[in-house]
Design a protein around this nucleic acid. Structure first.
Lengths: 226, 226
DNA sequence: TTGATAACTAAACATATGTTTAGTATCATT
DNA sequence: AATGATACTAAACATATGTTTAGTTATCAA
């Protein structure tokens, strides 16, 4: 027999049970057998059914045979999944202090608060929000006051819009690497790109990539002039 | 129109919503359409579907179309939104179908779902979200794919950014009135303003004002070229 | 009176979804 | 070495379940 944990589940069964729990929390309803199959990279439904029957036999779930998604969790937090203290359909995004996109600015230390936003927006990703102060990224349709949804990463693809720390200052730019040179490009022709070479590159840290934008007070925004 | 309760639900819709809630609490997963049909003694699925669409349009539930039992409750009994331990911090915004900002487009009938967003964003206002398809408002830094936060109003201030129905088509423009003339102005020079005079003005209905913008998939956005 | 909306019936229709049968490979125990 | 359980693949198979089209009836507001 394969190895079981303290509660009588094998490793694989525990994984399956964990997946069902997480899916349920995120979606409000249980997964289908095919969804589980795909989540585990299996090629046949039968594998999933075997696991479900084992979980049912061991009292972890109850099923309504022949009925789609009819899985009921009987044992609750027994094996707490790592870290997911917050369940539900919304995520809490900390709001970092105002930064200058283009000008010297304070670091993103000061956390102003948090915003709850639907898990389904921004692909469920993003780690914090950052308010834009300067107008160096207007070419990308990002204007002062916008809240950027930032996902923490230490690397990024070429051309990605990133939040970076340069000489201890936070800035939003497009990232371009060509050979040994890194260019942080604003998208407003009125601003000059930051070119980093050699040891200067070490003075630049990628904080994260910009994956979303939230704009408030549009009504009060500057009207377009023709 | 039939009688509605304080939160905009008719008696029957409230009954249907209540049934879904009770079923979910009792079974751990949502009911199927046929189960609801039988519970209400109806003879056709269509009746249930109509109610589900109404509940979705009003932001009470979110559905995953074509997927069985895929109903997510967004608002709980008291009328406060789900998803957080301390309820009432988020609001449910119905998401209206894609529209063309500048070109002929389908009406905003098709409701795609709903999004939960912090009450403190957008000043707690806004009535629904609308996805932008055209690029007629890029001068205001609104680009295709953006979700507009729209507040329903039948009037607006001069220069406000509005969602309007013109000849049965939905459009996003800046509203300008001068004397007996109304001009709906795009903010992209490649588009022509819509000028309404005399009886034409009646063919134009203001749906609401744009008070916010949400942009997803920024990483994939078109990079700025200098 | 007219038009819009809500709330349904009726009958197909399309497919998402659970199930079965038959078999393989691995592991732990006896 | 034989046994039983786990953890799968492969291919049908059956049907549960959501959707559509085309109506009807009642109610309410303009």
């Amino acid at each position: 027999m394969k190895r079981r944990d303290a509660r009588g589940l094998t490793k694989r069964q525990a994984e399956m049970f964990g997946f069902i729990k997480r899916y349920l929390r995120g979606n409000g309803y249980p997964p289908t057998i095919r969804e589980m199959r795909e989540a585990f990279g299996l090629r046949s439904n039968r594998g999933v059914i075997d696991h479900l029957r084992a979980l049912e036999r061991k009292g972890y779930i109850r099923r309504n045979a022949r009925s789609s998604r009819a899985i009921e969790l009987l044992i609750d937090a027994a094996g707490t999944e790592n870290g997911t203290a917050d369940g539900g359909m919304v995520r809490s995004y900390p709001v970092a202090g105002r930064i200058e996109a283009g000008m010297p600015a304070p670091p993103i230390e000061d956390i102003r608060g948090a915003m709850l936003i639907d898990r389904n927006l921004f692909g469920g990703e993003g780690d914090f929000l950052l308010e834009v102060a300067g107008d160096s990224m207007t070419g990308d349709h990002i204007i002062p006051g916008d809240l950027l949804v930032v996902k923490r990463t230490s690397t990024c693809e070429n051309g990605a819009m990133i939040v970076a720390m340069v000489d201890g200052e936070t800035t939003v730019k497009r990232f371009h690497r060509s050979g040994k040179r890194v260019i942080l490009r604003p998208s407003n022709a009125a601003y000059v790109p930051i070119v980093l070479e050699g040891s200067d590159i070490r003075a630049c840290t990628i904080v994260g990539t910009v994956i979303g934008v939230i704009r408030r007070d549009v009504a009060r925004g500057v009207p377009f002039s023709c």
